[in-house]
Design a protein around this nucleic acid. Structure first.
Lengths: 97, 97
DNA sequence: ACTCTGTATCGTTAAATCTCGATATAGCGA
DNA sequence: TCGCTATATCGAGATTTAACGATACAGAGT
């Protein structure tokens, strides 16, 4: 849990929004072959209007910061919030600020 | 209270550290003519090793985000945490993430 | 082996950020 | 008014970031 890395990751509104969407996948991501509790398929995030490569880069940034975890299933990669890291970060930032 | 602006302001470690220092001014800023509860004099922050102009820019960023307030007294400008905004931000980010 | 789909990576361009020294501005005091 | 101190702003260079299209890679199915 690197606070600076996480704050950098959160410094782009789209990445914050992605994390927020992942709190309630069923509310924000409708049609997906696999059950949503496996995670959300990467391509689903293109609904934000950015290109596939840009979305991929944002997801990679979130993963490097430890805010999401990924799981490959066949040709798909599913993204989930990393609740543990997120909780640790919120605790840390709450004590620091 | 603009969450995106605040997150951008917090995306530089030095600015987070400045806010942290301001939690306990007496612990981090020793000799100052005026009482520390007026705020901390801008020049005090140069102890971080950055140049005067760079420190000034960081302080301006924090102020634009509403994280600190300033008060001019004579030729000095005193910086204080804006506890209200900080609290509001922590509440907001805790609910968003 | 070939193709299709999903995702990552590359290369590039534009814009933003960080840092500095130099300069400008503002207020104090002689 | 002049000089001194504190702070802000300017201009420039270096680095980072964001975005895109194109391409590479990986897995599934034919």
């Amino acid at each position: 849990m690197d606070r600076d890395d996480i704050l950098k990751a959160l410094s782009h509104p789209m990445r914050v929004e992605i994390l927020s969407w992942l709190k309630e996948p069923e509310a924000h991501f409708k049609s997906q072959e696999h059950p949503l509790d496996m995670g959300v398929c990467a391509s689903q995030f293109e609904r934000c209007g950015l290109s596939q490569s840009t979305v991929s880069a944002h997801l990679a940034t979130l993963q490097r910061a430890g805010l999401v975890t990924t799981r490959r299933v066949g040709q798909w990669i599913f993204y989930k919030r990393n609740e543990e890291t997120i909780r640790a970060f919120l605790k840390d930032i709450g004590e620091t600020l």
